[in-house]
């Protein structure tokens, strides 16, 4: 196991390097640049700007300059949000996204497995159909529909919740309710469906049959044997889901004016804000690689049949 971890960790470094290098050169291929404007900047002024950001140097020099800065944990200035460095922008947005992501994913895992267990135990009964219909509905209705509908009902009609904003605004913690409810839906649906499927499978397996034959109580069987066996696909899914929910919440952030990282991801790509894009790529790949790494280790802990040779 420890040898596996070491080997797995060693492969992270070249992966990371490839991601950074590839992205750095790739993003310059996109049409337009960070200073494309409707009212075109006169060439002399554009030259001043390019010089200020060292963008008049050969690309390879820019690359080494950038990698050097990154090694000092400096992601550079933003070309668009000129008063902020990339570190400041991502630093402000990251805690917000983590909060929203963890709350949403927590809700999704909780409700998802619960609904999955119920429908697996009541397979092909009305509870099963009801639960699975909710899950299908959760994934069929896009977030950009759910968000405005929630806002319309709970903020405008019932006036229970503020329309938008974030926790430290005047409206307080209630602002997290609608975004997290919206954001969790597709993840909830995936987890409910997947846990139902794998629980049904585990329920039929020999070791559960044995456990039942031994006369163990049903709740004990479910807690001790079924859940543990059925968690594997869910855990696998949580790796990409975690990085996805943190960075891919742009729709929810847009609708509910949440100052998170997802909007920065999309905006920076559209604005060709090179340094911010690179910052995004680095942050995202760190989250993703770590999450997948953790998932691989969890495999061994969850399933004694898995061994890394």
């Amino acid at each position: 196991m420890s040898r596996f971890i070491v080997r797995r960790f060693l492969s992270v470094i070249p992966t990371f390097l490839i991601i950074v290098t590839l992205s750095f050169f790739l993003i310059r291929l996109a049409p337009g640049g960070p200073f494309a404007r409707e009212k075109k900047i006169p060439p002399e002024i554009l030259a001043n700007i390019m010089h200020k950001y060292h963008m008049d140097e050969p690309l390879i020099n820019q690359y080494f300059r950038y990698v050097g800065d990154v090694l000092h944990f400096d992601l550079g200035p933003s070309f668009r949000y000129k008063d902020h460095t990339v570190n400041e922008l991502l630093g402000a947005a990251f805690p917000v996204s983590i909060t929203l992501g963890v709350v949403s994913l927590g809700l999704a895992v909780f409700f998802g497995t619960l609904v999955g267990i119920i429908s697996a135990l009541r397979q092909n009964k009305w509870q099963d159909y009801a639960a699975m219909s909710v899950a299908v509905l959760g994934i069929s209705i896009p977030l950009f529909v759910v968000g405005p509908i929630l806002m319309l009902v709970f903020a405008l009609k019932l006036k229970w919740l503020p329309t938008s904003g974030w926790i430290n605004s005047r409206a307080g913690w209630t602002t997290i309710i609608m975004p997290s409810m919206t954001l969790m839906l597709p993840y909830f649906a995936y987890i409910a469906r997947m846990s139902r499927g794998s629980i049904i499978e585990v329920l039929r397996s020999d070791y559960v049959r044995t456990a039942r034959a031994k006369g163990l109580k049903e709740t004990v069987v479910i807690r001790k044997h079924v859940l543990k066996g059925a968690m594997l696909p869910i855990v696998t899914y949580l790796g990409p889901a975690f990085s996805g929910i943190i960075t891919g919440s742009v729709v929810v952030e847009q609708i509910f004016v949440v100052p998170g990282i997802g909007k920065i991801f999309v905006q920076s790509a559209l604005n060709r804000d090179y340094t911010v894009i690179m910052g995004d790529v680095i942050v995202y790949s760190i989250i993703l690689i770590t999450a997948n790494f953790v998932v691989d280790i969890l495999y061994g802990l969850l399933d004694p049949r898995i061994s890394y040779k």
């Binding site: 409700f111 119920i118 909710v134 229970w160 409206a171 209630t174």
Partner: peptide, 13 residues
């Protein structure tokens, strides 16, 4: 569970 996804607490600015 189904109801919990609909019930939200109340609070205003």
């Amino acid at each position: 569970v189904l109801a919990a996804t609909l019930v939200v607490s109340c609070g205003g600015p």
